[in-house]
Design a protein around this nucleic acid. Sequence first.
RNA 1: CCAGGGGUGGCGGAGUGGACAAACGCACCUGGCUGUAAACCAGGCGCCCUCGUGGCUGCGCAGGUUCGAAUCCUGCCCCCUGGA
Length: 395
Amino acid sequence: MFSFNILKKDKETKARIGILRTPHGIIHTPNIAIVATKGSIRGLSFDKANRFGAEIFMINTFHFFHNNRYEIVKKFGGLHKFLNINYPLMTDSGGFQIFSLGFGMEHGVGKVADIFPEESNIKNLPISKGRNLVKVYEEGVEFISPYNGRKIFLSPELSIKIQKALRADIIFAFDECTSPLSSYEYTKEAMQRTHRWATRCLDEFGKPENQVMFGIVQGGEYEDLRKESAKYINSLNFFGYGIGGSLGKSKKDIIKVLNWTIPLLDENKPRHLLGIGEVDDIFNSIEQGIDLFDCVIPTRWARHGAAFSYKGRLNLKSSKYLNDKRPIDPKCKCNICKKYSKAYISHLLKEKEIFGIILLTEHNIFWILNLFKEIRQAIKENKFLDLKKRILKYW
RNA sequence: CCAGGGGUGGCGGAGUGGACAAACGCACCUGGCUGUAAACCAGGCGCCCUCGUGGCUGCGCAGGUUCGAAUCCUGCCCCCUGGA
């Protein structure tokens, strides 16, 4: 029921196109999973996204766990039935929340921090941003729910049990996502724990027919750890691989991490770069051999007023667009760009009209999916680097 | 005309002798956002500059008291409520 086939490899780079088959449909790679954390693409229906070319969606275990909502979904027979859709789905394991509700929240940093993790700089971080709601143990993780303060405990086994109940086609092993500010020692400790958790996840998972699992490579920004992790995760019986965790202090570090990691992974299995999705990072990662992404940026930027365009990121909340009668992106073939001006959308966003967010979400999702279509076509025609050069001129 | 209340930065609205260029909210401007605690967050928002525990102007208008006034006093102007 599941398979992954590589159709063509780029001649100049490690980019490749492939087909990932699941019981709910096929995914042409490289591709991006549209994020629908709580079972909704904020501002757009699954059907519409699918019409724009979305072939797989990413939903989150933690958000169906902290409120025990997975029990309801289980009674429905899984997410497909609960959401009443028939598209391929993947679920994240909850491992990202170890970072986002823990260190990331405490220090206000993302996965790619543009800062140095020395003491002196940590002091200058906005540590008042939040407290650490996460305690990691060998057995699992204690979260203090950010929603109601309740203590909840998630283990590798429980994450897999929940993901089996949710019944997404592709699930992820429960890992610990570390911070760019974590020390070498801590990153190593967390990586080794993630490795032990990986085998516990596989044991719990068994061999179901309707789901496959991706293991996650950790190791932060450290070459020896990344290589060790890639070798170890590759030695286990996963269907594919996620590359997760801290990807370093700058965008260049992402390339380094992928360059260390990917050559050590079975080339016939799909590789998913967790959470990444800015335009330049997409090109650089595909060039290193990444097949799948997922990212909140298209929808989040839309809610925050930013648009994708061939001229780069546009902040449509800016008053300078109120006189602009042209579409967001004159080269974009989406209905929003066919019909609406930047002026109108800017006006809606400034007035906090929800319709502005809906229009922009539709455009951003369409735009990013179209970019992946162009990338696949380019690889097919051996023009990947040409396309990269052309697009990244403005990104 | 009488009685009472009130006039604070673009707007709303605190403050009622010193730490007030004036809380807070809105609006406005600029940034940020990468496995979603995010329709969010951060910064700026009188004028000037060498951008600082800097200078100037400033709380209806004019004057006064005081070391010091948005805050107290006097006069004037305007607004609101009730009465004739």
